[in-house]
Design a protein around this nucleic acid. Structure first.
Length: 733
DNA sequence: GCGCCCTTTTTTTTT
DNA sequence: AAAAGGGCGC
């Protein structure tokens, strides 16, 4: 470890200031991780006990990587520095609550609910109260949960959240509030904690137990919090509560990369840090070591249009490199082919795992996934579905959860669903009987169905065994195998492989609670995936945070997709989308391409409609991007879908066809005025009548389209667009 | 009460 | 394109 040689002056200052509060403003690619690693290593080398360091990061993987790199610096062997408490706020909260549950006056053996579990609990409350019954427009459980969680994380009233960003749901404000209360009560009664509870309950616990808080403050002489710009208000308060008596707190972050405001993160935390911790040393890391100058020129230009920001002057010594490209595929479908071709071309220069395709939302990669599959390019996707979200994994884990907490409703409902004759209603009844200790009902059920008796006996057997995760899991998987084939006839071998993987993960744990909670909070299945070599990476921008690749392709850069159409109405949301784009572009080391299809597929009309390049691209001055249009005779000719004519042939609507490069000429139409979307109602919901087709049979007309075409829903064939000539219309009666 | 079929509705990002 | 709700037969 040679601080003079390995670090620049600002980094060195951050590393050497080990006493007292420190705030590090770290621009993208400015060696933030290196700085934390060196600081860790220096602390340990200086004789600080690793057990007295607390390292809070955004993912467990980030913490592990830092510890392992610090270990390498200190030549401590492959495990790196051990004994440091580290991980996410949520994981730390779980570990602390579990460890000191007795002191805090809470029962042991609580269950941590993931999103799907929480939805089950909410659904239970909804059914019980009969709220929203029969109302098709009543918000989905996931939507309600999202609102409740948002209100909680932003520490606002539910009604305020609704009026700020979901005014169409205002009529449901009371119902949602009631559901929220029932949901909370249910969790308390049954010893269940959701993600938000972990943080808030830790705070309550520390406030209610000054001795415990004091103990933790003495124990952790050094705290480092990474990605501080993405902490929310409770997390900032937790940091303050945990801040060691020694005052050695370091926060690291970059306001320009704050992308979690939707769940309550606030950059105010960074701003307020120096006030909250008097005597704070503020260090700015401004030299970028990741990207070439042409990429930085683009990212600086993106940020230049930001409304509110803290001036930073990112610079690099890597002057040379290709100018980022703006690709203009004909449509989002040809975009997939173009991206695949580009990946293939890049793979001659870079290994596949050095290439990433990034997008705003998980669904945007579907077409590309198909295309990559066709062309045989292996890929790994991050963001979207998680390993532990898979139904078979949840099924198996439910048995283990019931070993620790018999009041775990979501687990019971999964497990009971396997017993023939037991559906949601009966399952609820049984659950309530178990809660009430009503052995009569259980006896009757057992007498009636043998499977139920077997299940109860099986659970009792499990509960009687020592709580070793791997051993218990083996029993469960063995018992579950026949159910697996029955429930998933198409793909149970693949799922079995997933369960084998789960067993491997379980083998690394000796504690059942930690195993179960980690799957929910940390998703170790994901780590395993991350190590795959020679796979192109597909990732949401959010999941790409903190990572970098030699080549980055960013797709669907058109209004309503990036920025997301949900973000168009409120300026703060739009600003967050801009930072998101900034994060995405700063992931690239050498090559960066942005794809803005000229038309996109629209589910609502079933066709393609012209798309405007993202507002963030239209705002750019000429220069930082080099535009390339897809050529009619080019590599992807013939791949665009029927009905998606090349834009020249398409009607001259508000597309870019007039100006050669965004921003080069006079400004195109202002944002928020897309040519479609708010158009005349096309009557998507109501039937316009019925008709008959020679092949598809009778169908319902859902919409009248231009060119004498109808959109018809055929019961056996799904929705189709058909010329009126081929249809026999029925009289509307 | 359960399970199947049909219809309607909605689709951001994550711990 | 998938999920959730309602209707209906068993």
């Amino acid at each position: 470890m040679d601080l003079e040689r390995d670090l620049n002056p600002a980094q060195r200052q951050a590393v050497l200031t080990t006493e007292g509060p420190v705030l590090v403003i770290a621009g993208a690619g400015s060696g933030k991780t290196r700085t934390i690693v060196y600081r860790l290593a220096r602390l340990v080398a200086g004789g600080v006990d690793p057990a007295s360091i607390l390292l809070l990061t955004f993912t467990r993987k980030a913490a592990q990587e830092m510890l392992s790199r610090a270990g390498l610096l200190l030549a401590m062997g492959p495990d790196g520095v051990s004994g440091v408490s580290g991980g996410t706020f949520h994981a730390f909260a779980f570990a602390t609550l579990r460890r000191y549950h007795a002191a805090a006056g809470y029962p042991d053996g609580f269950t941590v609910l993931d999103q799907a579990d929480s939805e089950d609990v909410l659904g239970q409350a909804k059914d019980k109260l009969g709220i929203g019954k029969g109302d098709r427009s009543f918000p989905r459980r996931s939507a309600i949960l999202g609102l409740l969680s948002k209100a909680r994380n932003k520490e606002m009233a539910v009604a305020d959240v609704l009026s700020r960003e979901a005014f169409h749901l205002l009529p449901y404000a009371d119902a949602i509030g009631q559901l929220g209360e029932a949901y909370t009560a249910f969790k308390t009664d049954h010893n269940l904690l959701d993600y938000d509870d972990l943080l808030f309950r830790l705070e309550q616990t520390l406030l209610g137990n000054p001795d415990l808080a004091d103990y933790l403050r003495v124990r952790h002489r050094y705290i480092m919090v990474d990605e501080y710009q993405d902490t929310n208000r409770v997390q900032a308060r937790l940091t303050r509560l945990l801040a060691p008596a020694s005052g050695n707190v370091m926060a690291v972050g970059d306001d320009a990369q704050s992308i979690y405001a939707f769940r309550g993160a606030t950059v105010d935390n960074i701003l307020d840090f120096p006030d909250l911790y008097p005597g704070t040393t503020v260090v700015k890391l401004e030299q970028n070591y990741r990207s070439t100058q042409p990429i930085l020129t683009l990212t600086n230009a993106i940020l230049a249009n930001a409304g509110r920001k803290f001036e930073k002057h990112l610079f690099t010594t890597r002057e040379d490199g290709p100018v980022p490209e703006l690709m203009r595929p004909f449509s989002d479908l040809t975009q997939a082919a173009m991206v695949a071709a580009k990946v293939r071309e890049l793979s001659r220069t870079y290994p596949l795992h050095e290439i990433a395709v990034l997008f705003r939302a998980g669904y945007q990669s579907y077409a590309l996934e198909v295309e990559l599959g066709k062309t045989g390019i292996p890929f790994q996707k991050f963001g979207g579905l998680k390993f532990s979200d898979a139904a078979h994994v949840k099924d198996v884990l439910s048995y283990l959860r019931l070993v620790r907490n018999t009041a775990d409703f979501p687990a019971w409902s999964r497990v009971l669903a396997f017993v023939p004759g037991i559906g949601p209603k009966t399952a609820t009844k049984i659950f309530e009987a178990i809660q009430a200790g009503d052995r009569g009902v259980l006896g009757k059920m057992a007498a009636r169905t043998a499977e139920f008796k077997t299940l109860i006996e099986f659970l009792d057997t499990l509960r009687g065994l020592p709580p070793v995760p791997a051993a218990l899991l083996e029993r469960v998987v063995e018992a579950y195998a026949p159910l697996l084939a029955e429930k998933f006839p198409d793909d149970y071998p693949r799922r079995q492989a997933g369960l084998d993987q789960l067993q491997q993960i379980a083998a690394a744990y000796h504690d059942l609670d930690a195993f179960l909670a980690d799957l929910v909070i940390e998703n170790p299945g994901e780590d395993r995936k991350k190590t795959r070599e020679d796979h192109v990476v597909l990732s949401t921008v959010h999941s790409s945070k903190g990572l970098e690749w030699s080549a980055v392709l960013l797709i669907d850069l058109v209004d309503e997709r990036f920025p997301s159409r949900h973000a168009l109405s409120r300026p703060e949301d739009l600003e967050e989308e801009r930072r998101l784009l900034y994060v995405a572009c700063t992931r690239a080391r050498e090559y960066l391409a942005l794809f803005a299809p000229e038309t996109v597929y629209q589910r609502t009309t079933g066709g393609c409609s012209p798309a405007l390049p993202s507002i963030f691209l239209r705002e750019l001055p000429p220069g930082p991007l080099k535009e390339r249009r897809e050529r009619l005779g080019g590599s992807s000719s013939g791949t665009f879908a029927a009905g998606c004519a090349p834009p020249r042939a398409a009607a001259g609507s508000a597309s870019m066809s007039g100006s050669p490069r965004p921003g080069a000429g006079p400004r195109p139409a202002p944002a928020g005025a897309p040519g479609n979307g708010a158009g005349p109602a096309n009557g998507s919901a109501r039937a316009l009548g019925y008709c008959r087709h020679k092949i598809f049979g009778r169908g319902k007309i859902i919409a009248t389209l231009d060119g004498g075409k109808y959109r018809v829903n055929f019961p056996d064939f799904g929705p189709k667009v058909i010329l009126a000539d081929y249809l026999e219309l029925e009289d509307a009666s």
